[in-house]
Write a protein that binds this DNA or RNA. Sequence first.
DNA 1: GGAGATTGTGGGTTTTTGTGGCTAATAGTG
DNA 2: CACTATTAGCCACAAAAACCCACAATCTCC
Lengths: 149, 149
Amino acid sequence: MLRGVHALSMDSKGRMAIPSRFRDAITQACQGELVLTIDTEELCLLLYPLNEWEVIQQKIEALPSYNRAVRRIQRLLIGHATDIEMDGNGRILVPGPLRDHARLDKKVVLLGQGNKFEVWDEQYWQERRDAYLQDDAMDIPEAMQELSL
Amino acid sequence: MLRGVHALSMDSKGRMAIPSRFRDAITQACQGELVLTIDTEELCLLLYPLNEWEVIQQKIEALPSYNRAVRRIQRLLIGHATDIEMDGNGRILVPGPLRDHARLDKKVVLLGQGNKFEVWDEQYWQERRDAYLQDDAMDIPEAMQELSL
DNA sequence: GGAGATTGTGGGTTTTTGTGGCTAATAGTG
DNA sequence: CACTATTAGCCACAAAAACCCACAATCTCC
């Protein structure tokens, strides 16, 4: 279960450390093999353990390809998905194109989201997070009405 | 069952003691493993025993990801949820980012809320509490109409 | 009311973790 | 085939977290 905010820094070669508390779990789940792709709705990257990603990819491929919205997320998600491995120091290398897309600078944030991480530029994440916090008057979908925390 | 207000202090490293009356129960329920996250509506933190939290996270993750209100809750709640353990002295370390978010200073308040605690900055809690006391003219939802105390 | 136990708080020390830089290896290019 | 640019592995440093012990305030029980 991946969760939590983790402020990290990328070095000049685009490498970033995976927080050590997750390394063992990731090594065990998928031998350190990860898949990095872009988010279709936000300016951030998605980092999946390989086994989790494969489930997702199958679901996406199974969608009806004659639908425009489907073609869109197929091209974007699967098209940008890149295999990544943790090195001996528990770091991953973020490929240049993906780095550019998410505007990643030196300071980045790794956001645990259950089955995946999101990777954000730190400053941009703070802006988006503040916006989310203020934006508390959205339409609450039915499925959420009964949620009790 | 967690209840009561407990005034505590955080030391310079961001550690705070769990009141001893709860320690045994927490150790028994979840081996001292807790999850700390932010509240989406108020400036405070939520502290769950791990077993309680996992139920909640599963519910949140099961919601449809392409809904905006859902994405918001997922990013805020799961994104900030951090695993925490009690140390040998029955204390927990509050990670810097969460400390900042709730503006926690030296004096904090732990507020029992049944299945979780809320963590407030003491002074801010007093302000909010007074506001709650005065604000007695809200709309009462249907489920509360029949409530008899 | 006093002695002992318990609880909350503070500080110092060790260990771990994240980060930067250097060197070796690999792949791509002319 | 040589040269360059990019990637991978390795080592070392600094900062942070975990651990341990000690004191002080509080509560309990006699």
